[in-house]
């Protein structure tokens, strides 16, 4: 039973309308996904709504519906369409060491395609606030989808994954949970810190980055992709966090706001090493046949992050909001 949780957002098309109706107690009826944009607002929101039942749910939607077979049947064609599109759109590579090695190279100069480079050098406070609002969909449940992979791993990969997750969840201290540090950052930027508050405002590109983690986390068959995804996040986080911390300092954000990214510079420099050598290395030793999935996880993450970055930068360069609902 539950009636608490974030409010349900409004529909963005037929698919999400059908899911919303089913969540509100209507009889689940499938809408064909044929011809629908796999990365578009409608499909991504429909998928997001269904995945959210595995995290904190929505106000007015009973908790038991997480495993409602009618809702699961609605979810399957949506995630198949999303997954097929990703598999078609990533490069057909399968060398994990090379895929992660490529991420370890940093540009010397300014990278005009990178949101963190932009925010560090040219970002304005309203853009930083939009960035935090968009990222809050993930950071307010930071590391949660990755915890689902733990029972699917063994030995070195499992031990190392749990150690990194322990850090993400505050190493035993509630006030240090990374999701809490992000809520503190949001408060410093004058944003609403309630879980799920910015779902209505989030563009499809942002929903897709979170749906990717849920997809990989919820499917045991995709454990290799989840590990590849996690490695990508940890490898790219430290230098990006340094740039974001620098942007926050330049724009005069508060101490808590700086703390979040300062913590990630240092923590993720460690996590990167542990994830590459122990989690990825351990999984490759244990289940070498998963190597193409690990690489798929790396490239799918890069693809969706690039799409989100391009969306944000395009709007900001035209001096307009990248959100569906501008911040007050």
């Amino acid at each position: 039973m539950t009636v608490t949780g974030p409010p349900l957002p409004s529909a963005r098309g037929e698919l999400s309308a059908a899911v919303l109706s089913a969540l509100l107690g209507g009889r689940p009826h499938a809408v064909s996904v044929d011809g629908r944009d796999p990365y578009g607002d409608d499909l991504q929101l429909a998928l997001y709504l269904l995945y959210e039942l595995h995290y904190q749910g929505f106000a007015g939607v009973p908790e038991e519906r997480e495993w409602d077979v009618g809702l699961l049947a609605l979810r399957r064609p949506l995630e198949r369409r999303f997954l097929q599109a990703l598999r078609a759109d990533v490069p057909p590579l399968s060398d994990a060491e090379q895929a992660l090695g490529d991420l370890l190279v940093e540009p010397v100069g300014h990278d005009g395609t990178s949101v963190s480079h932009h925010l560090e050098r040219d970002g304005e406070l309203w853009q930083l606030r939009e960035y935090a609002a968009v990222r809050s969909l993930y950071h307010l449940k930071e590391a949660d989808p990755h915890a689902w992979v733990i029972p699917r791993l063994r030995g070195r990969a499992k031990a190392a994954m749990v150690a990194v997750e322990f850090d993400e969840f505050g190493a035993g201290r509630a006030e240090e949970i990374h999701a809490q540090l992000f809520a503190d950052l949001m408060r410093d930027l004058g944003l609403e810190t309630a879980y799920g508050h910015y779902l209505e405002a989030a563009p499809a590109e942002a929903l897709a980055t979170v749906n990717l983690m849920s997809l990989f986390g919820l499917h045991r068959a995709l454990r290799g992709a989840l590990v590849g995804h996690f490695a990508t996040v940890e490898v790219t986080s430290s230098p990006a966090s340094r740039r974001l911390a620098s942007a926050l300092r330049r724009l005069g954000a508060g101490a808590a706001a700086q703390r979040f990214y300062d913590e990630h510079v240092e923590a993720d420099a460690v996590h990167e090493q542990v994830v590459r050598h122990e989690v990825v290395g351990g999984l490759l030793d244990d289940e070498p046949r998963l190597e193409p999935d690990i690489v798929f996880g790396v490239h799918a993450t890069g693809l969706l992050e690039d799409r989100l970055g391009a969306h944000l930068l395009k709007a900001w360069r035209q001096q307009r909001s990248a959100l569906r609902v501008p911040l007050s």
């Binding site: 190279v105 940093e106 540009p107 100069g109 005009g112 360069r317």
Partner: peptide
């Protein structure tokens, strides 16, 4: 980390 010289623009 190793660095590349190339600047990237949208």
């Amino acid at each position: 980390r190793r660095r590349t010289k190339r600047d990237r623009e949208l």
